[in-house]
Design a protein around this nucleic acid. Sequence first.
DNA 1: GATGGTATTACATAAATAGGTAATACCCAT
DNA 2: ATGGGTATTACCTATTTATGTAATACCATC
Lengths: 208, 208
Amino acid sequence: MAVSVLIYEDNTLLRESISSMLRLDPRFVVAAAFENVLHAETQIAELHPDIILMDIDMPGRNGIEAVIRIRATGSKIPILMLTVFDDTQHVFDALRAGASGYLLKKHLSTKLFESIDEVLNGGAPMSPTIAFMVIAAMQKPSANPYHLTTRENEILTSLSKGNSYKLMAAEFAITVDTVRAHIKKIYEKLHVHSQTEAVSKAIRERLV
Amino acid sequence: MAVSVLIYEDNTLLRESISSMLRLDPRFVVAAAFENVLHAETQIAELHPDIILMDIDMPGRNGIEAVIRIRATGSKIPILMLTVFDDTQHVFDALRAGASGYLLKKHLSTKLFESIDEVLNGGAPMSPTIAFMVIAAMQKPSANPYHLTTRENEILTSLSKGNSYKLMAAEFAITVDTVRAHIKKIYEKLHVHSQTEAVSKAIRERLV
DNA sequence: GATGGTATTACATAAATAGGTAATACCCAT
DNA sequence: ATGGGTATTACCTATTTATGTAATACCATC
């Protein structure tokens, strides 16, 4: 039984080209190839493809929005994003939206089949530079961009767990006034004015 | 100029096997192959290899600890982890420690050269299932495990940006008392008792 | 039309936090 | 030894939060 592939790609040339590539291999059948995602949900429900190839940048509604809508229907169908962008924001937006993999168009000719296979076998294909970005995002930034001292870091970490001043005082065996003093310094260095802002910044920027 | 590879692998058979594979290709030269990482830092300083292949599970000191120590010296040398484990904890520990890629041993024979090339070209090779785990971890959990209402979600999101009750009241054009009311409900549902705890939980569990 | 869930506003009080000022002490390096 | 950075404690005041209680209103659904 051939793998049914549904394609969303606004560039006609590329759309045809991908379809042709897939038709060369009898393991695949192109369910359809559309130039926009305006009716993606219903099209998917009707065609029930095994995998979707989705361009990220399309006029009208882009591929990321489409992924969000598709996932909102509860569908777990694998969606492989195709794109020329390899900037952090696009990649992460797409992955967070629920994309299953992320393939740069320049790798299309060499990696398309392999990528589809990977997705269908529970993998998550990514172009190497994309994989690097993803991993880099998981790793702590090398160091201390706000020049927090050791103690300030301890306090910020504790604060980020939701501890109150009292609890921190007990945890570090110092007085509440000292905790306060450290927090004042932390606010200065982080340019914030409340616990919430500090914690938000700390967690989002992986300071803790 | 050949790529100098340093190997850490406690299994003698596998260590020899990897060395042999690499010797088959004139592009590579094996700087050394050790059975433990006890002196990794000094060995790296002496041999200055271009890339390290690091088994994750070794007696005495494991590969993850070794990566942490190596990164602590400030070295940015690419480290490709070799492992039989593909459980979430091992993978994430290694990546967070600063590993550059993560190759399952069962893919060693087919992917070793390709993976080394990827690492040296700024990529981050991962076995497909590993890549899937990493992406899955980045994605939002399907939905609303705490059954927050639309409004509560809006408030929590705003709170997580560090906004005060006053600001939120202005943002949503409601009174501060209403904001307070929503926050009370949020605390109930999240089982927390302060902004900091709520924000911490929200960001870490990707509710916002 | 009754019911349940959500959204809204109000008032009150106790607790926690933010920001200012100030002083002491320790350690490291010049 | 002297100074700079860090850690510590203290006190004060204004603001913000946490929590409880209570009431009204809208909307969908049964």
